[in-house]
């Protein structure tokens, strides 16, 4: 297996991943808050910010990632929905076939993508063995968070309604009204920035790191190039259909990458190790 080809593929994948994440965030801003907003304008501002952060190095990025926890403070707002939840929507349990469940998992894998960046970050973690339990804890928390979102959405919407809803989790916010803020979805939509920015920075950083290993160039030299690529990419996705197509394309590739290619490499690695150290 050509090591370079795998790296090159991985770099392109990460840049595209950053692009699609950023574009779908800008789209929610355009639909929910500022319909007249130009894509390139917000994209440019956020990419300049990302440039600044990525140049700060891995530690700064980790700091920004910590910020992404901020959106968990929105969880209690779901308490406003209690009167409207129909938990009977969840029953009867396990009515779907295995193929249905597999299809659904493939659809949802986009939300879980990003773990593969860990492969590149790994040398930067000080005590990898001791840190392992934290990674598992983080993964558990995130899964729990997604599970609660899914349960809330299923209980809040009827089946037909959920099919018609473009952004069900954001529409949930449309229901919340506080005495000092009438439109809570504005807060909800803007809070997504805290989820988008860390992913953006991390993906760009990982791509530039991989480039450094492969071509022995300075990381700070390639970052602007990647940011430019992301910028061009977001400008080339003008509407809902193209963004949707982009997301499903990325989630297919990502799904195979995480669930097929990386396990395959692992098996290969085990195999080679045996070959090298015969007993």
């Amino acid at each position: 297996m050509d090591r370079g080809a795998a790296y090159r593929f991985f770099i392109i994948y990460l840049v595209m991943f950053a692009g699609i994440i950023l574009r779908s965030f800008i789209e929610t801003i355009q639909v929910w808050i500022f319909p007249q907003l130009q894509t390139w304008l917000l994209g440019f501002v956020l990419l300049v910010l990302a440039y600044y952060i990525v140049l700060g190095g891995f530690r700064v990025i980790v700091g920004i990632c910590l910020l992404s926890c901020v959106h968990y403070i929105l969880l209690p707002t779901y308490g406003f929905l209690t009167n409207y939840l129909h938990f009977s929507n969840l029953t009867p349990i396990l009515e779907h076939s295995i193929t249905d469940l597999f299809k659904a998992s493939k659809q949802m894998s986009f939300s879980f993508l990003g773990v593969e960046i860990l492969l590149i970050c790994y040398p930067f973690i000080k005590k990898p063995k001791q840190s392992q339990k934290w990674v598992h804890a983080a993964s558990f928390t995130l899964t729990l968070f997604y599970l609660s979102l899914v349960i809330f959405s299923l209980a809040f919407y009827s089946r037909g309604q959920l099919l018609n809803e473009e952004w069900p989790t954001l529409t949930l916010f449309k229901f919340i009204r506080l005495p000092f803020i009438e439109r809570f979805e504005f807060v909800g939509v803007s809070f997504n920035l805290f989820r988008v920015l860390p992913i953006l920075c991390l993906a760009i950083w990982a791509a530039s790191r991989a480039t450094k290993i492969l071509f022995a160039v300075r990381q700070s030299k390639v970052v602007p190039l990647f940011l430019l690529m992301v910028f061009i990419m977001i400008c080339l996705l003008p509407n809902r259909q193209s963004i949707d197509a982009g997301i499903s394309f990325m989630s297919t590739i990502g799904c195979y990458l995480v669930y097929a290619y990386i396990p395959f490499l692992f098996v290969l690695h085990l195999f080679r190790k045996k070959e090298r150290n015969p007993i």
């Binding site: 409207y84 129909h86 919407y157 009827s158 089946r159 037909g160 309604q161 099919l163 018609n164 229901f175």
Partner: peptide, 13 residues
């Protein structure tokens, strides 16, 4: 509005 839509798009309601 939400509940009207809920019942409208629900199959047994």
């Amino acid at each position: 509005l939400h509940q009207f839509g809920y019942a409208l798009h629900s199959e047994g309601m």
